[in-house]
Write a protein that binds this DNA or RNA. Structure first.
Lengths: 172, 172
DNA sequence: GAAATATGATTAACATGTTAAATGTATCGG
DNA sequence: CCGATACATTTAACATGTTAATCATATTTC
């Protein structure tokens, strides 16, 4: 256990940027990873990925939902959702049909097997969440969520300035 | 613009779980995505992904670094890092060699071209960050980062209870 | 000092993120 | 009614996340 961090003698090449580990995206990533690390083993035991679980949970709260709306609430991009729905359908965890009024739209609902799986996972998932809440503090947790939501709001529809490329339709 | 959200008439199947959109992982994911959405266009204009940018930034602050240490500071898993380093090396943005004292260890450093690229990207990146800080509030931003770090700390080394699978070596 | 074990890095295999293109269906304008 | 356009979804292509396995080198143990 000799040399650990040769930073003191390293010739640091200074580019004027924020200290890396303190950047906001990194902080959010690390926090989220710390949280997900708690849940993944349980989900894995039930053969589910995080995203598959998000979809099943979203489906469990409605009767039927359109694919586009499901993508919005589960916060997944269309292509990811397409692949996952294909998989979940092959495992008989969801049911699909097309909207008779508009053949472009796909309607998705959870299957009895899917509900059964949710009921099997929910207890440990809730226990983990309660554990996190207890350790971090329920009040702080609510505060944190409020601040995260506010951050989202601050950036909603915001276009980055200072050299970022404009999107099509923006005043170039 | 007729039907929008048929939630009122949807027969909700109640499984006792937290309201989906308010879960902590989702809040963190949405917040992070809102932030990254600001940066991605700029990075993209320079031919960089978010992870590649993280690596270059980490390299810019040191002279040389071991692969394992780089994975730690850039918060990437080994396999991802291996692939990205292979790519960055082929683009001559980094230099690699093996440690003469231990042939297993890889030493990585940024190349002159890599430094040049960083200097090209940094201004707009900083401007975007400043924009975010201004809109959300510099003080709130620091507060948020402190809370995120505290959350990380609360969960460090914590094993989820209540049904989560134990890891190898734990008392099963 | 050779076999067993540990360690650093990469490769493999599969799932998702991300953007662009393709496909099928609806709707609109004439 | 028909061609142009818009829309919902999927497919394609490539990059990364994630876990397990592999490979090469180091260290330990007998």
């Amino acid at each position: 256990m000799a040399r650990k961090k040769s930073r003191s003698k390293a010739a640091v090449r200074r580019v004027p940027m924020r200290e890396f580990s303190r950047s906001l995206p990194m902080s959010l990533l690390r926090a989220r990873e710390a949280v997900m690390r708690q849940f993944r083993p349980s989900l894995r035991d039930h053969g589910l990925t995080e995203q598959q679980w998000r979809i099943l949970r979203a489906l469990a709260s409605v009767d039927t939902i359109e694919v586009t709306e499901l993508a919005r609430v589960a916060f997944l991009l269309g292509p990811s959702l397409s692949r996952i729905l294909r998989d979940l359908e092959s495992r008989h965890l969801i049911d699909r049909r097309v909207a008779k009024a508009d053949l472009r739209r796909g309607m998705v609902s959870i299957s009895p097997m899917g509900l059964q799986l949710i009921e099997a996972v929910a207890p440990s998932s809730e226990a983990i969440y309660a554990d996190i809440s207890r350790r971090y503090g329920a009040r702080k947790l609510r505060e944190l969520q409020d601040m995260l939501h506010a951050l989202e709001g601050s950036l909603a529809g915001l276009r980055a300035s200072g050299g970022a490329k404009m999107e099509a339709g923006e005043l170039e």
